[in-house]
Protein backbone atom coordinates (compact mmCIF):
# COMPACT_ATOMS: atom_id res chain seq x y z
CA UNK A 1 0.00 0.00 0.00
CA UNK A 2 2.72 2.38 1.06
CA UNK A 3 4.83 1.74 -1.96
CA UNK A 4 1.85 2.22 -4.27
CA UNK A 5 1.00 5.52 -2.69
CA UNK A 6 4.60 6.54 -2.98
CA UNK A 7 4.81 5.59 -6.62
CA UNK A 8 1.59 7.37 -7.47
CA UNK A 9 2.71 10.39 -5.51
CA UNK A 10 6.02 10.68 -7.28
CA UNK A 11 4.48 10.17 -10.69
CA UNK A 12 1.97 12.84 -9.86
CA UNK A 13 4.67 15.30 -8.98
CA UNK A 14 6.33 14.50 -12.27
CA UNK A 15 3.50 15.70 -14.46
CA UNK A 16 1.81 17.94 -11.91
CA UNK A 17 4.49 20.45 -11.07
CA UNK A 18 4.57 22.19 -14.42
CA UNK A 19 0.86 22.87 -14.63
CA UNK A 20 0.51 24.19 -11.07
CA UNK A 21 -0.22 27.88 -10.54
CA UNK A 22 2.04 30.36 -12.33
CA UNK A 23 5.18 31.71 -10.70
CA UNK A 24 4.68 34.66 -8.40
CA UNK A 25 6.82 37.53 -9.63
CA UNK A 26 7.41 40.66 -7.51
CA UNK A 27 6.13 43.59 -9.56
CA UNK A 28 8.26 46.77 -9.59
CA UNK A 29 6.72 50.15 -8.65
CA UNK A 30 5.19 51.97 -11.61
CA UNK A 31 5.82 55.57 -12.72
CA UNK A 32 3.24 58.20 -11.75
CA UNK A 33 0.05 57.88 -13.80
CA UNK A 34 0.91 60.40 -16.50
CA UNK A 35 -2.23 59.69 -18.53
CA UNK A 36 -4.29 60.68 -15.48
CA UNK A 37 -2.43 63.96 -15.05
CA UNK A 38 -3.00 64.88 -18.70
CA UNK A 39 -6.67 63.86 -18.48
CA UNK A 40 -7.22 65.93 -15.34
CA UNK A 41 -5.63 68.98 -16.96
CA UNK A 42 -7.71 68.64 -20.13
CA UNK A 43 -10.91 68.28 -18.07
CA UNK A 44 -10.04 71.37 -16.03
CA UNK A 45 -9.28 73.24 -19.26
CA UNK A 46 -12.64 72.16 -20.65
CA UNK A 47 -14.30 73.50 -17.49
CA UNK A 48 -12.51 76.86 -17.82
CA UNK A 49 -13.35 77.14 -21.49
CA UNK A 50 -17.00 76.36 -20.85
CA UNK A 51 -17.16 78.91 -18.05
CA UNK A 52 -15.26 81.86 -19.51
CA UNK A 53 -15.99 81.68 -23.21
CA UNK A 54 -19.38 83.35 -23.74
CA UNK A 55 -22.26 81.33 -25.15
CA UNK A 56 -23.53 82.19 -28.61
CA UNK A 57 -27.09 82.09 -27.38
CA UNK A 58 -28.79 82.22 -24.01
CA UNK A 59 -28.29 78.67 -22.72
CA UNK A 60 -29.06 77.34 -19.28
CA UNK A 61 -26.82 75.10 -17.19
CA UNK A 62 -23.54 76.29 -18.71
CA UNK A 63 -22.07 76.86 -15.26
CA UNK A 64 -23.27 73.48 -14.05
CA UNK A 65 -21.54 71.84 -17.01
CA UNK A 66 -18.34 73.71 -16.22
CA UNK A 67 -18.65 72.65 -12.61
CA UNK A 68 -19.18 69.01 -13.61
CA UNK A 69 -16.14 69.04 -15.90
CA UNK A 70 -14.06 70.63 -13.16
CA UNK A 71 -15.29 68.01 -10.69
CA UNK A 72 -14.27 65.23 -13.06
CA UNK A 73 -10.84 66.83 -13.40
CA UNK A 74 -10.44 67.04 -9.63
CA UNK A 75 -11.57 63.44 -9.15
CA UNK A 76 -9.02 62.24 -11.73
CA UNK A 77 -6.35 64.29 -10.02
CA UNK A 78 -7.26 62.71 -6.70
CA UNK A 79 -7.08 59.30 -8.36
CA UNK A 80 -3.58 60.08 -9.65
CA UNK A 81 -2.46 60.85 -6.10
CA UNK A 82 -4.26 57.82 -4.66
CA UNK A 83 -2.79 55.44 -7.25
CA UNK A 84 0.68 56.90 -6.78
CA UNK A 85 3.44 54.54 -7.81
CA UNK A 86 1.84 51.42 -6.40
CA UNK A 87 2.52 48.32 -8.53
CA UNK A 88 -0.57 46.95 -10.22
CA UNK A 89 -1.27 44.12 -12.59
CA UNK A 90 -3.13 44.82 -15.81
CA UNK A 91 -6.34 43.04 -14.74
CA UNK A 92 -6.54 44.76 -11.34
CA UNK A 93 -8.75 47.79 -10.66
CA UNK A 94 -5.80 50.13 -10.65
CA UNK A 95 -4.41 48.54 -13.79
CA UNK A 96 -7.71 49.08 -15.58
CA UNK A 97 -7.85 52.70 -14.37
CA UNK A 98 -4.33 53.34 -15.69
CA UNK A 99 -5.28 51.84 -19.05
CA UNK A 100 -8.32 54.18 -19.25
CA UNK A 101 -6.11 57.32 -19.36
CA UNK A 102 -6.22 57.93 -23.14
CA UNK A 103 -10.01 57.52 -23.12
CA UNK A 104 -10.41 60.09 -20.34
CA UNK A 105 -8.34 62.56 -22.38
CA UNK A 106 -10.31 61.82 -25.56
CA UNK A 107 -13.65 62.31 -23.78
CA UNK A 108 -12.59 65.72 -22.47
CA UNK A 109 -11.35 66.77 -25.92
CA UNK A 110 -14.60 65.51 -27.40
CA UNK A 111 -16.56 67.61 -24.93
CA UNK A 112 -14.50 70.69 -25.80
CA UNK A 113 -15.07 70.18 -29.54
CA UNK A 114 -18.78 69.60 -29.03
CA UNK A 115 -19.07 72.66 -26.81
CA UNK A 116 -17.25 74.84 -29.36
CA UNK A 117 -19.28 73.84 -32.44
CA UNK A 118 -22.63 74.13 -30.64
CA UNK A 119 -22.82 76.41 -27.60
CA UNK A 120 -19.91 78.74 -28.28
CA UNK A 121 -19.89 79.36 -32.03
CA UNK A 122 -23.12 77.63 -33.23
CA UNK A 123 -21.38 76.07 -36.24
CA UNK A 124 -23.94 73.26 -36.41
CA UNK A 125 -27.65 74.00 -37.14
CA UNK A 126 -29.36 74.70 -33.84
CA UNK A 127 -32.52 72.64 -33.36
CA UNK A 128 -31.02 69.33 -34.50
CA UNK A 129 -27.65 69.67 -32.85
CA UNK A 130 -27.81 70.30 -29.18
CA UNK A 131 -25.23 71.75 -26.82
CA UNK A 132 -24.00 69.50 -24.03
CA UNK A 133 -25.43 71.80 -21.36
CA UNK A 134 -28.88 71.46 -22.96
CA UNK A 135 -28.76 67.69 -22.49
CA UNK A 136 -27.57 68.26 -18.96
CA UNK A 137 -30.55 70.55 -18.52
CA UNK A 138 -32.91 67.73 -19.50
CA UNK A 139 -31.45 65.55 -16.78
CA UNK A 140 -31.75 68.27 -14.14
CA UNK A 141 -35.18 69.56 -15.13
CA UNK A 142 -37.05 66.60 -16.63
CA UNK A 143 -35.57 63.78 -14.57
CA UNK A 144 -38.95 62.80 -13.15
CA UNK A 145 -40.52 62.07 -16.52
CA UNK A 146 -37.32 60.51 -17.83
CA UNK A 147 -37.07 58.32 -14.75
CA UNK A 148 -40.63 57.19 -15.08
CA UNK A 149 -39.99 56.31 -18.72
CA UNK A 150 -37.00 54.21 -17.72
CA UNK A 151 -39.11 52.41 -15.14
CA UNK A 152 -41.94 51.78 -17.62
CA UNK A 153 -39.48 50.49 -20.21
CA UNK A 154 -37.84 48.16 -17.72
CA UNK A 155 -41.20 46.86 -16.52
CA UNK A 156 -41.98 45.97 -20.11
CA UNK A 157 -38.68 44.61 -21.36
CA UNK A 158 -37.55 42.60 -18.34
CA UNK A 159 -40.59 40.31 -18.03
CA UNK A 160 -40.83 39.95 -21.80
CA UNK A 161 -37.19 39.09 -22.21
CA UNK A 162 -37.14 36.64 -19.32
CA UNK A 163 -40.31 34.94 -20.49
CA UNK A 164 -39.02 34.56 -24.05
CA UNK A 165 -35.60 33.39 -22.87
CA UNK A 166 -37.12 30.80 -20.52
CA UNK A 167 -39.47 29.37 -23.14
CA UNK A 168 -36.69 29.50 -25.74
CA UNK A 169 -34.33 27.64 -23.44
CA UNK A 170 -36.85 24.90 -22.68
CA UNK A 171 -37.77 24.60 -26.36
CA UNK A 172 -34.12 24.39 -27.36
CA UNK A 173 -33.38 21.67 -24.82
CA UNK A 174 -36.45 19.70 -25.86
CA UNK A 175 -35.53 20.02 -29.54
CA UNK A 176 -31.97 18.95 -28.95
CA UNK A 177 -32.95 16.07 -26.73
CA UNK A 178 -36.08 14.61 -28.28
CA UNK A 179 -36.29 13.54 -31.88
CA UNK A 180 -40.06 13.90 -31.74
CA UNK A 181 -39.98 17.51 -30.56
CA UNK A 182 -37.22 18.31 -33.04
CA UNK A 183 -39.26 16.85 -35.89
CA UNK A 184 -42.30 19.00 -35.18
CA UNK A 185 -40.78 22.20 -33.86
CA UNK A 186 -37.78 22.59 -36.13
CA UNK A 187 -39.71 23.44 -39.35
CA UNK A 188 -41.89 25.91 -37.46
CA UNK A 189 -38.89 27.69 -35.97
CA UNK A 190 -37.16 27.68 -39.34
CA UNK A 191 -40.10 29.37 -40.98
CA UNK A 192 -41.06 31.84 -38.29
CA UNK A 193 -37.76 32.48 -36.55
CA UNK A 194 -35.99 34.71 -39.09
CA UNK A 195 -39.04 36.98 -39.32
CA UNK A 196 -38.32 40.23 -37.44
CA UNK A 197 -40.53 40.27 -34.36
CA UNK A 198 -41.74 43.77 -35.24
CA UNK A 199 -43.41 42.33 -38.35
CA UNK A 200 -45.94 40.79 -35.94
CA UNK A 201 -46.84 44.21 -34.60
CA UNK A 202 -50.23 44.56 -36.36
CA UNK A 203 -51.22 40.99 -35.49
CA UNK A 204 -50.09 41.36 -31.88
CA UNK A 205 -52.00 44.58 -31.24
CA UNK A 206 -55.05 42.97 -32.77
CA UNK A 207 -54.75 39.66 -30.91
CA UNK A 208 -54.02 41.10 -27.48
CA UNK A 209 -56.55 43.29 -25.79
CA UNK A 210 -53.90 45.46 -24.10
CA UNK A 211 -50.91 47.07 -25.70
CA UNK A 212 -48.89 45.89 -22.73
CA UNK A 213 -49.75 42.26 -23.46
CA UNK A 214 -48.98 42.70 -27.14
CA UNK A 215 -45.62 44.31 -26.43
CA UNK A 216 -44.65 41.66 -23.89
CA UNK A 217 -45.51 39.00 -26.46
CA UNK A 218 -43.38 40.68 -29.14
CA UNK A 219 -40.41 41.20 -26.83
CA UNK A 220 -40.67 37.58 -25.69
CA UNK A 221 -40.80 36.45 -29.30
CA UNK A 222 -37.66 38.46 -30.07
CA UNK A 223 -35.64 36.81 -27.31
CA UNK A 224 -37.24 33.39 -27.80
CA UNK A 225 -35.86 32.70 -31.24
CA UNK A 226 -32.10 33.18 -30.73
CA UNK A 227 -32.19 31.48 -27.33
CA UNK A 228 -34.11 28.48 -28.68
CA UNK A 229 -31.89 28.02 -31.73
CA UNK A 230 -28.60 28.40 -29.86
CA UNK A 231 -29.71 26.18 -26.96
CA UNK A 232 -30.76 23.57 -29.47
CA UNK A 233 -27.46 23.78 -31.34
CA UNK A 234 -25.56 23.62 -28.05
CA UNK A 235 -27.40 20.52 -26.89
CA UNK A 236 -27.04 18.83 -30.29
CA UNK A 237 -23.29 19.44 -30.24
CA UNK A 238 -22.72 17.55 -26.97
CA UNK A 239 -20.41 14.62 -27.67
CA UNK A 240 -21.81 11.10 -27.41
CA UNK A 241 -18.96 10.14 -25.11
CA UNK A 242 -20.22 12.60 -22.47
CA UNK A 243 -23.46 10.66 -22.32
CA UNK A 244 -21.74 7.25 -22.43
CA UNK A 245 -19.68 8.10 -19.37
CA UNK A 246 -22.73 8.96 -17.29
CA UNK A 247 -24.83 6.12 -18.68
CA UNK A 248 -22.33 3.44 -17.68
CA UNK A 249 -22.49 4.80 -14.15
CA UNK A 250 -26.23 4.41 -13.91
CA UNK A 251 -27.45 7.88 -14.92
CA UNK A 252 -31.13 8.33 -15.77
CA UNK A 253 -32.19 10.23 -18.90
CA UNK A 254 -33.26 13.08 -16.64
CA UNK A 255 -29.75 13.22 -15.17
CA UNK A 256 -28.27 13.24 -18.67
CA UNK A 257 -30.40 16.24 -19.62
CA UNK A 258 -29.88 18.23 -16.45
CA UNK A 259 -26.30 17.42 -15.61
CA UNK A 260 -24.71 16.69 -18.98
CA UNK A 261 -26.63 18.22 -21.88
CA UNK A 262 -27.57 21.54 -20.27
CA UNK A 263 -24.20 22.42 -18.68
CA UNK A 264 -22.39 21.42 -21.86
CA UNK A 265 -24.70 23.66 -23.90
CA UNK A 266 -24.41 26.70 -21.60
CA UNK A 267 -21.73 28.59 -23.58
CA UNK A 268 -23.98 28.43 -26.62
CA UNK A 269 -27.05 29.35 -24.56
CA UNK A 270 -25.32 32.53 -23.43
CA UNK A 271 -24.65 33.54 -27.03
CA UNK A 272 -28.39 33.15 -27.61
CA UNK A 273 -29.23 35.19 -24.49
CA UNK A 274 -26.88 37.94 -25.67
CA UNK A 275 -28.42 38.07 -29.13
CA UNK A 276 -31.93 37.95 -27.68
CA UNK A 277 -31.15 40.94 -25.47
CA UNK A 278 -30.41 43.19 -28.43
CA UNK A 279 -33.49 41.97 -30.28
CA UNK A 280 -35.69 42.57 -27.22
CA UNK A 281 -34.54 46.17 -26.83
CA UNK A 282 -35.13 46.94 -30.47
CA UNK A 283 -38.67 45.55 -30.25
CA UNK A 284 -39.21 47.47 -27.02
CA UNK A 285 -38.44 50.82 -28.65
CA UNK A 286 -40.62 50.08 -31.67
CA UNK A 287 -43.51 48.87 -29.52
CA UNK A 288 -43.31 51.97 -27.34
CA UNK A 289 -43.31 54.20 -30.39
CA UNK A 290 -46.25 52.41 -31.98
CA UNK A 291 -48.67 51.38 -29.30
CA UNK A 292 -47.54 51.79 -25.73
CA UNK A 293 -47.87 55.38 -24.58
CA UNK A 294 -45.01 55.22 -22.10
CA UNK A 295 -41.37 54.35 -21.82
CA UNK A 296 -38.16 55.60 -23.42
CA UNK A 297 -39.29 54.86 -26.98
CA UNK A 298 -42.40 56.92 -26.40
CA UNK A 299 -40.39 59.69 -24.70
CA UNK A 300 -38.09 59.95 -27.71
CA UNK A 301 -40.96 60.17 -30.13
CA UNK A 302 -42.80 62.66 -27.98
CA UNK A 303 -39.69 64.83 -27.68
CA UNK A 304 -39.15 64.70 -31.42
CA UNK A 305 -42.74 65.78 -31.96
CA UNK A 306 -42.06 68.93 -29.91
CA UNK A 307 -38.70 69.40 -31.64
CA UNK A 308 -37.03 69.16 -28.24
CA UNK A 309 -34.00 67.33 -29.53
CA UNK A 310 -32.17 67.73 -26.27
CA UNK A 311 -34.75 65.51 -24.60
CA UNK A 312 -34.45 63.02 -27.43
CA UNK A 313 -30.68 62.77 -27.12
CA UNK A 314 -30.95 62.49 -23.37
CA UNK A 315 -33.36 59.58 -23.72
CA UNK A 316 -31.07 58.00 -26.29
CA UNK A 317 -28.16 58.25 -23.87
CA UNK A 318 -30.22 56.65 -21.12
CA UNK A 319 -31.29 53.86 -23.47
CA UNK A 320 -27.68 53.22 -24.44
CA UNK A 321 -26.68 53.04 -20.78
CA UNK A 322 -29.58 50.67 -20.11
CA UNK A 323 -28.66 48.28 -22.95
CA UNK A 324 -25.01 48.35 -22.09
CA UNK A 325 -25.85 47.76 -18.42
CA UNK A 326 -28.02 44.77 -19.30
CA UNK A 327 -25.26 43.27 -21.44
CA UNK A 328 -22.72 43.82 -18.66
CA UNK A 329 -25.03 42.11 -16.22
CA UNK A 330 -25.44 39.16 -18.58
CA UNK A 331 -21.69 38.85 -19.10
CA UNK A 332 -21.09 39.00 -15.35
CA UNK A 333 -23.55 36.16 -14.89
CA UNK A 334 -21.86 34.19 -17.63
CA UNK A 335 -18.38 34.74 -16.18
CA UNK A 336 -19.66 33.45 -12.89
CA UNK A 337 -21.46 30.40 -14.29
CA UNK A 338 -18.90 29.52 -16.92
CA UNK A 339 -15.73 30.21 -14.97
CA UNK A 340 -14.57 26.75 -16.04
CA UNK A 341 -14.23 27.98 -19.60
CA UNK A 342 -10.95 29.38 -20.78
CA UNK A 343 -10.54 32.46 -22.94
CA UNK A 344 -13.91 34.10 -22.33
CA UNK A 345 -14.76 37.20 -24.34
CA UNK A 346 -14.74 40.17 -21.97
CA UNK A 347 -17.30 42.95 -22.04
Amino acid sequence: MNSIAHRIGSANRLDGAASAAGFARPSPPLPVWAGGVVAALVWLAAAGLTHWLPDDDDLGRTDLLALAAAAIGVVILAAVVAVGRRPARRESRIGQLRAAGPWLVALALGLVAWELVTAKYAVLPRPFFVAPQSILEVFTDDWARLGESVLRSLLLVVPGYLLGAAIGFLTGVAMGWSRFVGYWVHPVIRLIGPLPATAWLPVAFFAFSSSRGASTFLIALASFFPVAVLTWSGVSAVGKSYYDVARTMGASPWFLVRKVAVPAAMPSVFVGLFMGLGASFSVLVVAEMMGVRAGLGWYMQWAQGWASYGNMYAALLVLAALCSGAVTLLFRLRDRLLSWQKGLVRW
Binding site: G239, S241, Y242, D244, V245, A246, M249, G250, A251, S252, F255, K259, V260, P263, A264, M266, L338, W340, Q341
Partner: peptide, 22 residues
Protein backbone atom coordinates in the same frame (compact mmCIF):
# COMPACT_ATOMS: atom_id res chain seq x y z
CA UNK B 1 -12.13 5.56 -22.25
CA UNK B 2 -9.11 6.54 -24.30
CA UNK B 3 -10.00 10.18 -23.77
CA UNK B 4 -10.50 11.17 -20.13
CA UNK B 5 -13.94 12.60 -21.11
CA UNK B 6 -14.05 14.64 -17.94
CA UNK B 7 -16.82 17.22 -17.82
CA UNK B 8 -15.04 20.56 -18.24
CA UNK B 9 -17.62 22.40 -16.13
CA UNK B 10 -17.01 20.21 -13.09
CA UNK B 11 -14.06 20.22 -10.74
CA UNK B 12 -11.96 17.07 -10.46
CA UNK B 13 -13.86 16.02 -7.37
CA UNK B 14 -17.26 16.70 -8.92
CA UNK B 15 -16.17 14.66 -11.92
CA UNK B 16 -15.19 11.76 -9.71
CA UNK B 17 -18.56 12.08 -8.00
CA UNK B 18 -20.62 11.67 -11.18
CA UNK B 19 -21.47 8.01 -10.51
CA UNK B 20 -22.75 8.46 -6.94
CA UNK B 21 -24.54 11.66 -7.94
CA UNK B 22 -26.32 9.89 -10.80
Amino acid sequence: FQDPTLYPWRTVRANAAVGPEA
